[in-house]
Every structure is written in C-alpha cells, then in structure tokens.
C-alpha cells in the first residue's frame, strides 16, 4: 500500500516536471534553458529533476516526445472529417497555433537537438503529410489542383510556414504569427496549387 502511494507520488512529480519543462522550454528555448529553471518552475529541488531524468538530454528528449504526442493527437482530431487540401492546411495551422511557442523553438533548434528529438519533428510532419498527400492526390486526379509531386506540395507548405515561424519576431513581434498571417498564407498557397479555369 505504502509502495503504491510512493509510486503515485513519483509519477505525479514526473508529470509536474514535464509540464513545467514544456512551458519553460517554450519561453526560454530548448538548448539554453537550464534545468534549475525547470526545477524552480515545477517547484521541486534541482536534484529531484535528476532523480527522474538522469541527464539533461534525457529530459529534453522525453519532453519533446510528449510534445510530439500531444500535437499529433490534436492534429489528428482537427483533420478528422476534412477532405480538401485547403481544409487540411487550415486545420494544420489551427493545431500549430495552439502550440506555437514550443513549436517555434523545436523547428528553430531542431538541428542542434539529440537525434531522437529530430525524429520527433519528422513524426509530427508525418501526421500532416499523410492527410495532405491523400487529399492532394484526389484533388489532382479531379483536375482541381495542379499535378505536382506530393513531397514538393508538402515541403513547399512547410517551408513557407516555417519561414514565418522562425522569423516571428520580424513578422509579428509580440503576437502569434500564425494568427496574424495564417489566412494569407493559406490563400497564397492554395492559389499556387489550384488549376486556373
């Protein structure tokens, strides 16, 4: 009985650390946030962090993985029932807007992160590339969209939104770049893809 209570407490503390890290990393960056700041924000001692996560890299990788899981789940919910490319692009931006601060850190710093964390980025992209490709294939075969390679349709979109996200301080200081430009980005990208009649 006592053991169960202790395990419960342990898992609660672990969750508390992950939640605090998600907020702190989004605020001050993935690479440069010291674990002491995460400890303060989680209201635990610095040593407690390392009792749960042996190294800073393990903590970072687990937090990024948790983030990937949440974003994927949310994106999946949002694209549910959406069948056109335009609807999927809108749902993608809606999902990312909810996690914008952390996502910006992730894509800005991804090349400097441990390999496992980089794979999480590919996992997040896969959730969207799957739905986008399926919708694009149908609309291309119906003659609504230009016949373009699927990976270029996806990478063109990602390139565009990541440019705005990673330069958010230039495009929309102090406010959400996706909220401010989301509509314009979607309309522009759709205009590139659509077949003119």
């Amino acid at each position: 009985m006592k053991e169960t209570q202790r395990q419960k407490q342990k898992s609660q503390t672990r969750k508390q650390i992950i939640e605090a890290a998600l907020k702190q990393y989004a605020k001050t960056g993935l690479i440069k946030t010291p674990t002491i700041e995460i400890a303060k924000s989680a209201k635990v001692s610095h040593g407690t962090i390392f009792a749960h996560f042996p190294t800073q890299d393990v903590l970072l990788t687990e937090v990024i993985e948790e983030f990937g899981f949440r974003v994927n789940k949310r994106l999946h919910e949002l694209v549910e029932g959406k069948s056109t490319v335009e609807e999927i692009l809108k749902a993608h931006l809606e999902g990312l807007t909810e996690y914008e601060d952390f996502y910006i850190r992730l894509v800005s710093e991804s090349r400097l992160l441990p390999p496992q964390a980089q794979d999480t980025v590919i996992m997040i992209q896969s959730a969207i590339s799957h739905h986008l490709s399926r919708a694009a294939e149908i609309e291309m075969s119906e003659g609504k969209l230009k016949k373009l390679p699927l990976h270029m349709v996806f990478n063109g979109w990602i390139g565009l939104i990541h440019y705005y996200l990673t330069n958010h301080d230039l495009f929309s200081p102090g406010e959400s770049v996706l909220k401010r430009y989301g509509q314009e980005l979607t309309a522009y990208y759709m205009a590139l893809l659509q077949v003119r009649i």
């Binding site: 590919i122 896969s126 590339s129 799957h130 390679p149 699927l150 990976h151 270029m152 996806f154 990478n155």
Partner: peptide, 9 residues
C-alpha cells in the same frame, strides 16, 4: 516509403 513519398527525404 511513406516518408520518402510524402516528405521527400
């Protein structure tokens, strides 16, 4: 195959 086809890696 899915990653190559949809993301071009």
């Amino acid at each position: 195959e899915f990653i190559v086809r949809t993301q071009g890696l």
